[in-house]
Structures are given as structure tokens and as C-alpha cells.
């Protein structure tokens, strides 16, 4: 193997043999495990918190809505809040991944492919842990078909991946102008109340409804509700717009993942 370093790239050339592939696998596994360790460290329940967290948060909102007598639907809240948490964590992870220049390794350069594969695996497992309990509850307590429960988990995976990609695309801008981190943080907080996270779109009217027709998260949340058989406006939404939004997100994910190597390389001399 030969390492070619220039202004534009740091490229490992030559055909990787089986031992190189083994090392890459071990690195991916190390990075993923280390990310989860960081998220669960010193906690007695460890990974279980990741499974319980969306459920507990949903229960809190359910309680708040019950107190203000807004006649909430528990399944709708469970789905909306969980989907929003997946959306938020995926976007933020994508925005932050450019800082993870070497996956925590300090004695050897790790290829971007390894770092990004580890990021994607971590995202997939994280989204799975965030959604699996909710899917089980929907099936056992709310009569959702097991197949639809599985589709809900897969839908969250797709949405998580697309918003992770969007985060990767905007990460260099956010890193160059740190003030944007505050703006994104406020937008996400506002988005939680404006988007159909705590309540379905059927409760929205006028301009509030119209804005959400251009909100890609709204389509995923409403589709999840539709699959679970609770109030949803998904059949009334424009499928053409949904397809266009998916294409834009898909394209941005593609651009983000293609450019990440160059961005990561450029970042090494920034401070």
C-alpha cells in the first residue's frame, strides 16, 4: 500500500489485502463501540437508557397534554416525538462528524471510508435502539400490525440517514461560522413545536399547515402515523412534493458523503 499526500488529497493506493480489510473492520468496530461507550458511560442501565429515553420523553409530553386537557393520542405522541428525536440526533451527528477527524486514533491515519462507515453504523444502531421499544409498544398496546411496526423502524432508519447526510453537507459552514450552531439549535427547538411531532397535521390550520407541506420531517412523521393507524394527513399530502423533498435530501446526502474526504482533509490545518 502506498500513501500519496498532496494539497487535494491523502490517498491510500494499491489493492488492500485481507489483513488490511481485517484491520479496517476492527477499526470500525472500535469507533462504533467507543461512541456508544461515551453515550452510556457510568450508567447502571447503560444501553437500556437509549431504548427507554424516547418512551420516557413521550410519556412526559403525554402527561403534559393530559393536564392541559388537549385530549392527546398516546400512539401519535409516541410516534411523533420518537421520529423528531431521530431527526434531531441524525442532523446534529452529521453536523458534528467533520470534527471526528481520526475516529479517536492517535498513532495512525484512519481512512475517511472507515471513519464514515463507523459513523453510519453508529447511526443505524442508535436509530434502531431509539425506535425498537416504541415499535414493540405500538404492536402490543395499540394493535399496530407487526409488519407496520417493522416498517416504522425502517422508515426511521431512512429518515435518520437522509438527515445525517444533510448535517454533513452543512457542517463546514457551521464550523466556519460557529454562530450558526446557535441558529440551528433554536430552529430545532422551534421545529419541535411547529412540526407534527407532538400533534398530527390534522390539528394544523392555515399557514401552519401550509408551511409543514414543505417540511420533509412532516412527511416521515405523518407516514409513521398512517402506518400505525392513528390520525394522519399523509394520504392528503402531495406525493410529488414528497418525492422531490426525498430527492433533494438524497442528493445532499450523496454530495455530503462524496465531499467529506476533502472537507476532512481541509480541516486538518484549521484552528
Amino acid at each position: 500500500m502506498r500513501l500519496e499526500i498532496s494539497e487535494s488529497t491523502c490517498l491510500l493506493t494499491g489493492k488492500p489485502d485481507s489483513s488490511n480489510k481485517e484491520i479496517d473492520k476492527a477499526r470500525i468496530s472500535f469507533i462504533v463501540r467507543s461512541k456508544f461507550r461515551k453515550a452510556t458511560r457510568r450508567r447502571f442501565l447503560g444501553y437500556l437508557w437509549m431504548v427507554l429515553d424516547p418512551f420516557i420523553i413521550s410519556m412526559i409530553y403525554l402527561f403534559v397534554f393530559s393536564v392541559v386537557k388537549s385530549n392527546p393520542n398516546a400512539a401519535s405522541i409516541l410516534l411523533g416525538v420518537t421520529m423528531y428525536r431521530v431527526f434531531q440526533s441524525s442532523l446534529l451527528k452529521g453536523m458534528g462528524c467533520i470534527k471526528e477527524l481520526n475516529g479517536g486514533f492517535k498513532a495512525e491515519r484512519i481512512s475517511t471510508r472507515v471513519v464514515m462507515t463507523a459513523e453510519v453504523y453508529h447511526r443505524m444502531i442508535d436509530v434502531f435502539l431509539q425506535t425498537i421499544l416504541i415499535a414493540v409498544i405500538l404492536v402490543l398496546a395499540f394493535g399496530t400490525e407487526p409488519f407496520d411496526g417493522i416498517v416504522f423502524v425502517l422508515l426511521a432508519q431512512v429518515m435518520g440517514f437522509l438527515f445525517f447526510g444533510l448535517g454533513v453537507v452543512i457542517s463546514p459552514i457551521v464550523n466556519q461560522i460557529p454562530d450558526l450552531q446557535n441558529v440551528v439549535s433554536y430552529m430545532l427547538r422551534l421545529g419541535f413545536y411547529v412540526s407534527p411531532a407532538m400533534y398530527p397535521m390534522v390539528r394544523m390550520e392555515g399557514i401552519h399547515y401550509q408551511i409543514n407541506q414543505y417540511n420533509p420531517f412532516a412527511y416521515f412523521a405523518e407516514l409513521a402515523r398512517y402506518l400505525a393507524g392513528v390520525d394522519s394527513t399523509f394520504p392528503d399530502l402531495s406525493m410529488l412534493l414528497f418525492a422531490a423533498l426525498i430527492c433533494i435530501l438524497g442528493l445532499s446526502t450523496y454530495i455530503g458523503l462524496v465531499r467529506i474526504d476533502k472537507l476532512r482533509w481541509r480541516m486538518t490545518t484549521w484552528s
Binding site: 500513501l3 499526500i5 491515519r109
Partner: peptide, 27 residues
């Protein structure tokens, strides 16, 4: 040379696997 910094210009070609020891924490 360890591939951890981007050059402003010029090239480096390294034939073989490199281990870079700086400090005593490999991660």
C-alpha cells in the same frame, strides 16, 4: 508525513504502513 496534516503545496509519497508515535496515548 503521517497523513494527519494537509500540505499547502508539494507532495509526499510513502511506501508502506506508517505508525506515528506522538505522546503515549494511541487512543
Amino acid at each position: 508525513l503521517a497523513g494527519l496534516l494537509r500540505p499547502a503545496s508539494g507532495t509526499v509519497v510513502i511506501d508502506g504502513r506508517v505508525i506515528f508515535l506522538s505522546g503515549v496515548d494511541p487512543g
